[in-house]
Simulated scan of single mutants.
Amino acid sequence: MHPVEIKRGNGPIILGMPHTGTFVPDDVKDKLNPRGQKLTDTDWHIDKLYNGLIDDVTIVRATFSRYVIDANRDPKGVSLYPGQNTTTLCPTTDFEGEPIYFAGEEPTDGEVKERRLHFHAPYHQAITDEIARLKQSHSNVVLYDCHSIRSELPFLFEGTLPDLNIGTNDGATCAPEIQHDAYQICARSGFSTVLNGRFKGGWTTRHYAHPAKGVHAFQMETAQSAYLTKEQAPWTYDETKANKLRPVLKELLTMMTDFCAANARNEGK
């Protein structure tokens, strides 16, 4: 299986989906314990949640599981949240802090390097290429990183996570107008919302963002309780819940599209 699926559009928005994949190579699957083989920490149905919200959008989706390698982690292994519990480039524990490998079967440095070359690198090369492609026709583009997570995970955060968690690395990854308008859209939607709370944006948003050069990055971490029937297997997509959430996400993406178009017109004056 190819590590990346790409759907090309000509609009200024790229949807990054690093954690929806469930492919695990046999040599890795054999080393995962029964807990790991459940792939519990997948961003379940995020591709379906965002499907068709806006026209002419580009989508870059990793097909491999984050348990193989996490496409939203620094390839050098540097922690996104120093001093806080998190998972690593090639996770050995899940979001509850429990081992996902049989004892002694955790990936070696050589295996981490191989996975980085075969999975992590192609995904990020695709994002790099799509940003460069769209920048040829748009002065501003937005890389919108799509994520979801269970709403209660004491190993990672206290209490219950809000429905919508906006991450811009404290405003560094996008234009102030994008952050402001995104927060306003979410805050008035009826869904609980936080800006740069526990999730400030992962490696993807921090690495690619260069607002001064017209490359804006934005992470949305959605609580799975907002669109799944239950936050447990079989991870059923709840159409009723999702149909309340999807208009909010559509408004966000439309706002970002309009921002890019307005700034293009201003620059042309």
Rank of each mutant, 00 (worst) to 15 (best):
I100A: 11
T88S: 15
L80R: 08
L80T: 03
L117F: 05
A121H: 04
Y81K: 15
R115F: 13
D94W: 07
R73I: 02
L80A: 13
T92I: 15
E105V: 00
F95D: 11
R66W: 09
D94I: 11
I100W: 09
V112R: 02
V112H: 00
V68P: 00
H120F: 12
Y101N: 09
T92G: 10
K76I: 04
Y81C: 07
D94C: 07
A71D: 11
V68S: 00
C90I: 03
E106M: 08
G83K: 05
T87P: 06
I69D: 01
Y101P: 05
G104H: 11
A62K: 01
I69C: 09
D74Y: 01
F119P: 01
G77T: 05
K76G: 03
Y81D: 09
P99M: 14
V112F: 00
E114I: 01
P82K: 13
A121S: 12
P107N: 05
C90F: 03
F95Q: 08
D70N: 13
P91E: 09
A103M: 01
D109A: 14
G77V: 01
H118Q: 14
T88R: 06
E114Q: 13
E96A: 03
S65P: 13
T93R: 15
A62R: 00
P91W: 07
D94G: 05
P99E: 14
E96F: 05
A62N: 14
P82A: 15
L89F: 10
A71H: 10
F119S: 03
Y123L: 06
T108A: 04
N85D: 07
R73W: 05
K113L: 14
Y101H: 13
T108I: 04
G104Y: 10
F64D: 04
Y81M: 13
R115S: 11
E106A: 12
P91M: 09
E106Q: 09
N72L: 11
D74V: 02
L117A: 12
K113R: 04
E114D: 12
H118S: 10
G110K: 08
P122C: 01
P75W: 04
E106I: 03
F102D: 08
F95M: 11
Y123C: 11
R66C: 08
G77Q: 11
T87G: 04
A121I: 03
I69A: 02
V112C: 01
Y81L: 13
H124N: 10
T108V: 08
A62E: 13
P82S: 14
